[in-house]
Design a protein around this nucleic acid. Structure first.
Lengths: 77, 77
DNA sequence: TTTCATTTGTCCGTATGTATT
DNA sequence: AAATACATACGGACAAATGAA
């Protein structure tokens, strides 16, 4: 099944989440300009802590895939 | 043009707005006894949420620069 | 007097930023 | 990585008071 986080996997959880989201972006499931699910939603959905979700967001941001607007959300670039 | 809010600036938006208004007061553009623009007007003019505008007002009030009269407005002291 | 628009007061919910432990 | 706390910000909703029509 796609979209599950494996705490014992090769990649750390934050990178796994980042890859999942990256795939969704590239697949068009998350189109440009779309706001990603909030940190809270991602925490619930993938059963991760906020800092883990934020690390994933940081990674995606560093990759130039998304853009974060303070107090608004993170958007697909 | 002076009076633009930079969401990524050093000072948070509410402080930037407060500084703008403070300058106008000190420059005489907003003389004593004058009623400041309403919260709604400031929201529109600077594209800020009401709570942000109100924070700016609180700050100005704490500085002793203005005085607020409920249902009437905020006045330069 | 009644009605209406304006303005501030208050509260709630949600979201990100930062720091600490 | 997680948990927690606090700051900052946006939006909506409703109340209360004022003053004008």
């Amino acid at each position: 099944m796609v979209g599950k986080i494996d705490p014992t996997g090769k990649l750390p959880p934050y990178r796994q989440l980042a890859e999942i989201i990256k795939q969704k972006i590239e697949a068009g499931e998350y189109p440009a300009e779309m706001r990603l699910p909030s940190e809270s939603e991602l925490m619930d959905e993938y059963e991760l802590g906020r800092s883990t979700v934020r690390r994933a967001m940081n990674w995606l941001r560093e990759q130039g895939l998304v853009e974060t607007v303070p107090t608004r959300g993170t958007y697909v670039k």
